[in-house]
């Protein structure tokens, strides 16, 4: 059973993560080909590009959600944070001499407004961190609470509607800018940059490794010298910051802060993370998988729209896709074990 003479690195079998990622790529390909055959006019380059570009915001918040889920924690507050950050950044920026309540803001310079809004987003993350990392309360409960809290702030500041007047020109620039000569938005570029950074952190850094260790066995992680509470707290701050950035970009794109923006995005982010193979039990997952998960969800919902199904069907489709993805993963991994 032992062979010390050969210093061979075990490489005959790919890791479970590679396996799941490849498996989901195959699922994506099959769905895409299927949709191209069945749905009229589905297959075109424009669709392929749209798939990614129209979904950048869910992937961006999905990064934080993936890291947290890998440690065994949920973050359902990201949708609320998007709305809150968008609304607050508008409010901070709006001129202070407007005629109506909703067109009057604080009149702060653009840069200051952005930074303050992001600080507020991180503040929500800090509430999550305090209750979950320090007081060890179940993450799903707390982040549902902060979801409500953040959206509540957005509601109050917009009186339940939206703020979209008396904004400086510069406010709408970044969200509407595209890479010169293409239709690709700067937001997509920012998302891509964060994905690459996150994939690097996840696989190549001590920080990323600790994320897996905590998810795999929090008690052993603690006994091995990992500062578990601190690490989880930092992840909640990062997740809130990413949601804040997303909120700013979306508000800039529409030059408006909507109180009901991003409703249900926390669920979409969770769905694509699960579709991408991240284990709900922690210790297993990847950002690349989450991107693949986002593409799968995109293909399915666009195909449904292409088949002229009512948009109201989208929720049911998302639900079914979630269940199928989890069943497929379970079966694939079971088979692999046996």
């Amino acid at each position: 059973m032992q062979n010390n003479s050969t210093h061979k690195i075990y490489s005959g079998k790919m890791s479970n993560e590679t396996f799941i990622n490849l498996f989901m790529v195959v699922v994506l390909a099959v769905l895409f080909i299927g949709a191209s055959l069945v749905v009229p006019n589905f297959f075109s380059m424009k669709i392929v590009v749209n798939l990614i570009t129209n979904y950048w915001f869910v992937i961006l918040i999905g990064i934080g959600v993936t890291f947290l889920l890998t440690t065994g924690h949920f973050d359902m507050s990201v949708g609320g944070i998007i709305a809150m950050t968008g609304v607050l950044s508008v409010y901070f920026c709006q001129s202070s001499t407007g005629s109506m309540p909703l067109s009057t803001g604080l009149g702060l310079p653009y840069g200051v407004a952005i930074v303050l809004a992001l600080l507020c987003a991180v503040g929500i993350g800090a509430v999550n961190a305090f209750f979950i990392a320090k007081l060890k309360v179940a993450s799903i409960i707390i982040t549902l609470g902060t979801m409500s809290l953040a959206r509540g702030i957005a509601q109050i500041v917009t009186l339940g509607a939206q703020r979209n007047t008396s904004l400086p020109e510069i406010y709408g620039v970044i969200g509407n800018a595209s890479i010169p000569g293409t239709v690709v938005k700067v937001s997509v570029l920012i998302m891509a940059a964060f994905v690459i950074l996150a994939a690097f952190v996840e696989k190549k850094t001590v920080f990323g490794r600790r994320t897996y260790l905590i998810g795999a066995n929090p008690q052993a992680a603690k006994l091995s010298g990992v500062k578990v509470s601190k690490h989880v707290a930092i992840l909640y701050l990062i997740s809130a910051l990413l949601a804040g950035v997303t909120g700013l970009l979306l508000a800039s794109e529409y030059k408006a802060g909507l109180s009901n923006r991003a409703t249900g995005y926390e669920f979409d982010a969770l769905v694509i993370t699960l579709l991408g193979g991240t284990s709900i039990l922690g210790g297993f997952g990847s950002v690349v998988g989450t991107v693949i998960g986002a593409l799968i969800l995109c293909v399915v919902t666009s195909a449904a729209t292409g088949l002229l199904l009512s948009p109201d069907m989208q929720f049911i489709i998302k639900g079914i896709v979630t269940f199928l993805a989890i069943l497929a993963q379970r079966m694939a991994l079971e088979k692999r074990k046996g």
Binding site: S15, Y212, L213, A216, N217, A220, A221, L223, G283, F284
Partner: peptide, 13 residues
């Protein structure tokens, strides 16, 4: 198993 190891991870990890 519960305090010393990360059983779902590899020996290398």
């Amino acid at each position: 198993r519960s305090q010393g190891l990360f059983t779902i991870l590899t020996i290398r990890t």
